[in-house]
């Protein structure tokens, strides 16, 4: 692939810790290869800041191949930046024009307090999972894997929901900071499988209750979560959650 070098003006949120108010600071990124990933551009910038004796920018990242869900930047108003279906770590500098100003902010939500710079605390998502995102089966209890055939279309739909990487982009993108897409993906994964049936009702009730307790907003069906989800998880899962929730509420 042909590559060129570009210069960017970066406007990056700096915040010392959770107590600090925080503010934007401007940086210049020069001679950035379009072959670089967005986070590699941050590596280059941080290397420079360290050499200049300044504090490098803290940001979450780990696998850098779009699957661990750790990276979390709000770039030019978009969760994970301008490319659809892409995590920040898989966003490449080809997406930007020479001379462009790029604003980078942390995920913003009451339920995701900023820890430092672009790093936020997403443990609320873990607690939603703890509220019911599992099948209660102890190790060793299982029957043979093929003893229970599962309709391929349902298994595939379950997998589509299970692809969620728990990055929180849905929350970041939602104007209400709602975690419905995340929660519904988990609920759907199990609701579609026979293994999930015994705990179906309690699961959805408990997970939704936990979601509300964590301070996430309510869903108003704007669809922004689906548009920003790096795994392109469908809001049909939210409809399924709603269905599950209603039927759980009316079940005897």
């Amino acid at each position: 692939m042909e590559h060129k070098e570009i210069n960017l003006n970066l406007r990056i949120w700096r915040q010392k810790n959770a107590q600090d108010k925080g503010q934007f600071e401007n940086y210049k990124a020069e001679n950035i290869s379009t072959e670089m990933s967005f986070l590699e551009m941050f590596d280059v910038l941080n290397e420079r800041l360290i050499n200049e004796g300044k504090d490098p920018i803290a940001f979450d990242h780990d696998c850098r191949e779009g699957i661990c869900g750790m990276c979390s930047m709000h770039i030019n108003g978009r969760a994970h930046g301008p490319w659809d279906g892409t995590t920040t770590c898989q966003l490449h500098m080809r997406a930007f024009k020479d001379g462009e100003t790029v604003t980078v902010e942390p995920w913003r939500a009451k339920a995701f307090p900023v820890l430092k710079d672009l790093t936020v605390d997403r443990s609320a998502l873990d607690r939603i999972q703890q509220a019911g995102g599992y099948v209660s089966v102890n190790t060793g209890n299982a029957v043979d894997g093929n003893s229970l055939p599962i309709d391929k279309t349902k298994a595939d739909a379950s997998f589509d929901a299970a692809m969620c990487i728990g990055c929180g982009a849905c929350v970041a993108a939602c104007k209400n900071s709602s975690a419905m897409l995340f929660t519904s993906a988990k609920v759907s994964q199990y609701a579609l499988l026979p293994q999930g049936q015994p705990e179906r009702n309690t699961r959805v009730m408990n997970m939704v209750a936990q979601m509300d307790k964590e301070g996430f907003g309510a869903c108003t069906n704007t669809g922004a979560c689906e548009a920003e989800c790096p795994k392109e998880i469908s809001i049909s899962n939210i409809a399924r959650l709603n269905r599950e929730y209603l039927s759980a509420q009316f079940s005897l």
């Binding site: 604003t103 902010e105 913003r108 939500a109 009451k110 104007k175 900071s177």
Partner: peptide, 12 residues
């Protein structure tokens, strides 16, 4: 209620 769920707004 939803308006309270993002105390610090996005700049962009």
């Amino acid at each position: 209620q939803n308006n309270q769920k993002r105390p610090v707004k996005y700049s962009v």
